[in-house]
Write a protein that binds this DNA or RNA. Structure first.
Length: 806
DNA sequence: GAGTTTGAAACT
DNA sequence: CAGTTTCAAACTC
């Protein structure tokens, strides 16, 4: 089966993952996608990059090298590229010597402490690595370090092994310290070169994430190896080798795009702790990757796994290595749901695991609820607090509908962890809010009609679908159809409900419940005509969010919030502004949010009437725009601004523009901010780092950015970030509108070139304009398979006759 | 459980 | 891009 061999490369190996060096892996990974962007400049020989890349190399090669080394006896050796060939003292660490471990642990603790306390304000906005080290820690990448690492590579033939027991940064730290002892002064030339390499390293720090994406794009699974210390390779073992591609491919691939630490953290208290730890260690880049979306899309969910692994890595490395083994077991208990037939399974992989080839029937049946949990909670239903685990037997009863939903709404903590819990063959599966599965008759579960397909999961035997193709055995076909679907709509697999990032993940977690925020909105808006948005026909209602002006619904009575309320709010808001303006007609002291309106009004001879007109025109423009709203997929993104109710200042802007479409205004604004602050996720998907205070202050060094309500936030955005641009350009002129069209430069398709955005990311840091499109999916990378088309054709032939599938 | 309603998705 | 058709979930009886 395609992909199997690839996945095999990261087969679980209980021994420390060895890291082959010296390959010029860069090129091999730079054929496409985000990796390219990280290798855009000439420092491709970056040792660290090679190190990182090497972690992704084939297992065979790794094994071969491992065989040649002393890694097996617990002594790991730092190896770098063999560029110099000079004789240099070997760098080795005996990780299994107690005193040595203690020493290393202490040093590492200091290192981490240093990181956490001194990350400077020059943190880059790049995902992951770029933000990990502040300027003050560049010493870690000192020329000596780099030079040494470079030189040390010459020893590879003798040392013959590499280590990955510590994460990359620790390797650097170690190497640096060793280098300080081993090396004397260096020539300026070396320093200069090393500085360039430093840059390469920094880029490499992004690379970890980028690689994930890249490999996801290749449909490979090496990510499991990425940057994990040796013990962390245990994570790999959480998915048994036999998993192969049976049923997990698309989902599993998606996990690689490590963007959503939040999701990870939301699933496991320990993971939360890990996140905190990682952040405390200075990894503010983590924040950059943390969406605050309340919707659990499996793509994001799974995607976060690797992040979690890295977090856990940091966390664990911060602990005493003496206790590492125990701690690993302890931590692992957090991450593991249970063993299934002796195979440990990450709690969040339950659904994936459900598709395992062996005992598939049982697993799938068990996972039915888990999958539907994902469906119901991540797509439309209030998301499950986490993918909690319940015993298989109970799940079975759930799937049979014999258990009241209220019962499985809570975490089932049965069979509390016994000392041998990891050895027991208790069959735990993901808890679910229900076991609803699809019931497709004609779509063969290969279209978005199918909830399973839309959710990015395979159908299970618990589904009632007919002629289902959405099964692991039709993996290629499924992937192909996913590709087609994504081609039609890149957001097809995105969560339908998007949370405004105003609410930090922590804020959204309340007693383990994933809270939807008041600013959550349907990504596209509904189009209800008869249901009045008060039935589950309405996706907004179903998603538990209010309708916004992005919706084209009629007679909206969405109990979660309807457009009528929105317009009322706007009107009231404007009226308040009017009153305020009139009351302070000379030199009023008005709120910041009112200043724009006031400035506008000040120029008007008859401000009251003008503003009234403005309101009318505003409402007209909203009405007028409805039919076309969200007409294009990426326009949906552009309209995220609508997820936040337009505010007073927006009205002010509108007022200034006369007939300017409010949507265009927000687009313009977003366009501006997007240009400034968009950051590309490592996956190449766009992360809208318009995230407000929840994440940005830490990430971007924006001190004390106040927590803003959504409308206030939007208002402030209008005031603070774009006034000049917006005020000056937000005119009815076609040109102005065009310039901010989402179809123009600031809205890019998902696979945008990262460096283009990254180069301007620093500006974005200053913009303070933050929105996050939550959980942009890194859905299965949709690697084209030649077989796929043939498969689907074959399937067509197989099924057309029977069901007349179109 | 069958039939109807509904609106999203897909198609033209 | 708008109109139409298809589809499956939601709903009703």
């Amino acid at each position: 089966m395609p992909g199997s061999d690839v996945y095999r490369q990261s087969d679980i190996q209980p021994k420390p993952q060895l890291m082959p060096c010296f390959q010029k892996e860069v090129q091999s990974y730079s054929s496409s996608g985000c990796i390219d962007e990280h290798l855009a400049d000439p420092f491709k020989e970056d040792n660290m990059m090679n190190s990182s890349m090497s972690s992704l190399t084939s297992h065979e090669e790794t094994t071969t090298k491992a065989d040649d080394t002393n890694a097996g006896n617990g002594k790991a050796t730092v190896l770098m590229s063999d560029q110099t060939g000079e004789e240099l003292p070997s760098v080795s660490m005996n990780f299994f010597d107690a005193s040595a471990r203690q020493k290393e642990t202490e040093r590492f603790g200091e290192f981490l402490q240093c990181l956490s306390g001194n990350v400077d304000d020059h943190v880059e906005s790049d995902i992951f690595g770029g933000t990990f080290f502040g300027e003050q820690h560049r010493e870690l990448f000192s020329p000596q370090n780099i030079e040494y690492l470079q030189a040390a590579g010459g020893q590879h033939d003798k040392l013959g092994a590499s280590f990955q027991i510590f994460p990359e940064f620790l390797q650097r730290d170690e190497a640096y310290k060793y280098s300080k002892e081993s090396l004397g002064s260096l020539s300026k030339e070396s320093v200069k070169e090393a500085d360039q390499r430093h840059r390469g390293i920094r880029r490499h720090l992004h690379f970890g994430a980028a690689i994930s994406c890249k490999h996801a794009g290749n449909g490979t699974y090496e990510t499991a190896n990425l940057c994990l210390p040796g013990r962390q390779t245990d994570f790999e073992s959480l998915v048994p080798p036999h998993v192969e591609t049976r049923g997990i491919s698309g989902i599993w691939q998606a996990r690689s795009c490590s963007q959503t630490a939040t999701l990870w953290s939301s699933f496991s208290p320990s993971a939360c702790e890990s996140v905190k730890s990682a952040q405390n260690y200075g990894n503010r880049a983590v924040s950059a990757c943390i969406p605050s979306g309340g919707d659990l899309h499996l793509n994001s969910f799974v995607r976060s796994e690797s992040v979690g692994s890295e977090f856990s890595t940091s966390k664990k490395l911060g602990s005493n290595l003496h206790q590492q083994e125990e701690k690993l077991m302890s931590d692992r208990d957090h991450y593991l749901c249970k063993e299934i037939d002796g195979n440990p399974v990450l709690s969040f992989l339950g659904d994936i695991y459900s598709h395992l080839g062996y005992e598939q029937q049982e697993s799938q049946a068990a996972a039915g609820a888990g999958s539907s949990s994902y469906q119901s909670s991540s797509i439309m239903q209030p998301p499950c607090d986490s993918l909690h685990l319940i015993p298989y037997e109970q799940q079975a009863s759930l799937c049979k509908g014999t258990m009241p939903s209220s019962e499985y709404a809570d975490i089932v903590e049965l069979n509390q962890m016994s000392p041998e819990r990891n050895r027991k063959k208790a069959k735990y599966i993901i808890k679910s809010e229900g076991c609803r599965r699809c019931n497709c008759k004609k779509s063969r579960c290969l279209k978005l009609y199918c909830e399973c397909f839309a959710a990015g999961i395979y159908c299970l035997d618990t589904c009632s679908c007919v002629n289902c193709i959405n099964k692991p055995e039709y993996e290629d076909t499924v992937l192909d159809m996913r590709q087609q679907t994504e081609a039609r709509n890149p957001l097809a697999f995105a969560p339908k409900v998007i949370n405004n990032a105003t609410n930090s993940p922590a804020n959204m977690m309340e007693e383990g419940k994933w809270m939807k925020t008041s600013s959550s909105r349907h990504k596209k808006g509904c189009n209800c005509k008869k249901s009045k948005c008060s039935k589950k026909y309405c996706e907004c209602f179903q998603g538990g969010v209010g309708c916004c002006n992005g919706c084209r619904c009629e007679g909206c009575y969405n109990p979660y919030g309807n457009k009528t309320d929105l317009y009322s709010e706007l009107s009231e808001s404007l009226e308040r502004e009017q009153l305020l303006s009139l009351a302070t007609s000379s030199k009023p002291e008005i709120s910041i949010s009112s200043q724009t309106n006031y400035r506008r009004a000040e120029r008007w001879n008859n401000p009251s009437q003008e503003q009234l007109d403005t309101l009318e025109s505003h409402n007209d423009c909203i009405k007028a725009e409805r039919p076309n709203q969200f007409s294009s997929t990426w326009e949906e993104l552009a309209d995220i601004g609508h997820l936040t109710p337009p505010s007073r200042c927006l009205l002010g802007a509108v007022a200034s523009s006369g007939s300017l479409n409010i949507r265009d205004c927000s687009k313009k604004f977003l366009g501006q901010s997007q240009q400034e602050s968009s950051v590309l996720s490592p996956s190449g998907y766009l992360n809208w780092h318009h995230s407000p205070s929840s994440l940005t202050p830490k990430l971007y060094g924006c001190e004390a950015l106040p927590e803003l309500s959504s409308d206030r936030f939007f208002c402030n955005m209008m005031e603070d970030a774009t006034p000049e641009t917006l005020k000056n350009t937000c005119t009815p002129s076609t040109e102005g509108v065009k310039s901010c069209s989402p179809n123009q430069k600031w809205v890019s398709p998902p696979k945008i070139r990262s460096h283009e955005l990254r180069s301007s990311s620093s500006q974005g840091l200053r913009s303070g304009c933050k929105f996050i499109l939550q959980d942009l999916p890194s859905f299965p990378p949709l690697t084209p398979y030649s077989k796929s088309q043939a498969a689907i054709h074959q399937n067509d032939g197989d099924h057309k006759g029977s069901n007349g599938y179109q």
